[in-house]
């Protein structure tokens, strides 16, 4: 565990808490893509199956359970409790266009052709693109509330910090995982345009509004 990895994890937890609090406090999930949230739930479900087979550390297990529980809670709040506030007309990204290619790629490019390993690989590929429905929703409505922007910034920072963690681990431990690195780079690049808008607008107190 190095500082980049830990900061990345904290940023990830922070993002999820911001989102849950926003939905809970405003009793509304307006502006949030339920499809991205479903994809994240699928990501955690397929990645953390090793909760039952491999013990790494208490920290690891607790975080895995936390991610599973909070993503389940988010999906529940959006599709059950505050269903009436869900923006489904704008949330029209077709997730099969992400699920199918990720599944096929995981079957072809993986470390080992076993059920657990293919599912892990699938979850890594899917996570890298899971935010697309959310970014698509923001582009369709042309704007995002500040709190939604903070959520996206924290969520994007998490993988960017993991990239630093992988550079560090490569140098210090000679440890690297090409699949995770490749997907992590893709994931971070997808946020770049958003990062730019966040820094130039939201941090200066303006609302995130896309140019018309």
């Amino acid at each position: 565990m190095n500082i980049f990895r830990f900061a990345g994890d904290l940023s990830h937890v922070f993002a999820i808490i911001i989102l849950l609090l926003k939905i809970w406090k405003t009793r509304s999930c307006a502006g949030i893509s339920g499809k991205s949230q479903i994809l994240f739930a699928v990501v955690y479900l397929t990645r953390y199956l090793d909760l039952f087979t491999t013990y790494v550390s208490l920290y690891n297990s607790v975080m895995k359970v936390l991610f599973l529980a909070t993503s389940g809670a988010t999906v529940y709040l959006m599709y059950v409790k505050f269903k009436a506030t869900y923006d489904h007309n704008h949330d029209s990204f077709r997730i099969e266009f992400l699920l199918v290619p990720c599944a096929l790629l995981a079957l072809v490019i993986n470390h080992e052709f076993t059920v657990m390993e293919v599912l892990w690989t699938f979850s890594i590929y899917l996570e890298s693109v899971a935010i697309l429905p959310q970014l698509f929703l923001v582009s369709r409505t042309g704007e995002a509330e500040s709190i939604t922007s903070h959520y996206l910034f924290a969520l994007g920072s998490y993988r960017a910090l993991y990239l630093l963690n992988w550079v560090y681990r490569y140098m210090v431990e000679s440890h690297y995982d090409l699949i995770a690195i490749f997907a992590g780079v893709v994931q971070t690049v997808l946020y770049c345009d958003f990062f730019y808008l966040y820094i130039t607008k939201v941090l200066k107190g303006k609302k995130l509004q896309l140019p018309a």
Partner: peptide, 10 residues
């Protein structure tokens, strides 16, 4: 025996 790459990250 190959047990796959080490997965200690989240």
């Amino acid at each position: 025996i190959y047990i796959g790459p080490k997965k200690d990250e989240l």
